[in-house]
């Protein structure tokens, strides 16, 4: 009945532990969907499921062993039996075999994942700091040339494909100017630099690109947040009492911008990660991006599935952490 639905609402103040509980359920549900998707896709998609499961290279290379392979994969068995085997395999660490890299998928993934995380995690932090700084400045000097310039730059970067900017920078600074290496994460001993410096030197450009993009996303959030806070009465009061601009900015404005920033970071972690993948390809950075790129070329399905799974897990973890942190950051609930 129309009216009942608009009835006196039973006000539900979300108990934060319960809230996290329900979010955890959502994440688990998502994980379940992903795993099931990974299971069903090769079996539902066009083509021989055997090929879809082991990958093209393996398929065409194995010859007569095909039937044995089919039996070994248990494709003749009932679906739920296969699903059970698949799940056990996942949990025990058997994620399949990559014919591209000629090693178990799990090993390839761990090898490449660390490089991606090495690139993405610092950039997330740096970008947040950069956005906080620039966003505050832009908000403070609203509508001035600084603000317009910064906002314009943000908009420009926001509109570009990440990897295209990467290509431009690589071309400009590595090919033409030779300031940075042409790719990869290390020079494999070719340069005399100590390991960390060497990696850092290689990491500079890709890190710059990923950071620039994340900072562009965050910039607007910070700016809007700070603008709205600067307009609030208690801030004007603080200024009237003689607090300097800087103090006001840092004590009030940024603290309040922190919570939305963290939430946005979590929500967009997936996007940042995805963007980083393509940037890695351009710089031949040995992370998940390169893995996926090569796997696509070789149609190495087990590798692709697991890459998807691990990336999804990372994103879920990031979301979860943000959910746990949020109540502590939101000044309203403190």
């Amino acid at each position: 009945m129309a009216d009942v639905s608009n009835a006196a609402p039973v006000q539900r103040h979300e108990h934060p532990t319960a809230a996290i509980g329900s979010r955890a359920v959502r994440y688990l549900a998502a994980l379940f969907v992903i795993v099931t998707l990974n299971f069903l896709l090769p079996r539902m998609m066009p083509g021989d499921p055997v090929m879809n499961i082991v990958g093209e290279e393996a398929y065409y290379g194995s010859g007569e062993v095909l039937d044995a392979l089919r039996a070994d994969l248990g494709l003749d068995e009932a679906l739920h039996v296969q699903y059970g085997r698949y799940m056990t395999g996942l949990v025990t660490g058997d994620w399949g075999y990559s014919y591209l890299y000629l090693q178990p998928v799990r090993e390839s993934i761990t090898l490449h994942l660390r490089w991606t995380l090495a690139l993405v995690l610092p950039s997330v932090v740096l970008a947040a700091l950069l956005a906080a700084l620039l966003g505050s400045i832009a908000a403070w000097k609203r509508s001035s040339r600084t603000d317009v310039g910064l906002s314009g730059a943000h908009l420009l970067i926001y509109s570009m494909p990440h990897y295209w900017l990467a290509m431009l920078l690589l071309f400009m600074f590595s090919f033409k100017l030779g300031w940075f290496p042409l790719g990869r994460a290390t020079s494999a001993g070719a340069s005399e630099l100590p390991y960390l410096i060497d990696v850092g030197w290689h990491m500079f450009l890709p890190l710059l690109v990923v950071t620039a993009f994340k900072a562009a996303y965050d910039f607007l959030i910070v700016r809007n947040s700070v603008v709205s806070i600067l307009g609030e009465d208690y801030v004007l009061m603080a200024q009237a009492k003689g607090l300097s601009g800087m103090a006001v900015l840092f004590r009030h404005a940024l603290r309040n911008a922190l919570a939305p920033l963290v939430t946005v970071t979590a929500i967009q972690f997936g996007m940042v990660l995805s963007g980083a993948l393509l940037v890695e390809v351009v710089f031949s950075w040995p992370g998940m991006g390169t893995l996926i790129y090569d796997a696509i070329g070789a149609r190495d399905y087990p590798l692709l599935q697991s890459a998807f799974l691990i990336i999804a897990i990372c994103v879920l973890i990031a979301n979860f952490i943000a959910d746990v942190l949020y109540p502590y950051l939101d000044p309203r609930t403190r």
Binding site: A8, P9, V10, Q11, R12, H13, E14, H15, P16, P327, T333
Partner: peptide, 9 residues
């Protein structure tokens, strides 16, 4: 109206 308990309040 039923208002559920909110430990943060």
């Amino acid at each position: 109206y039923l208002v559920r308990h909110n430990p943060l309040a």
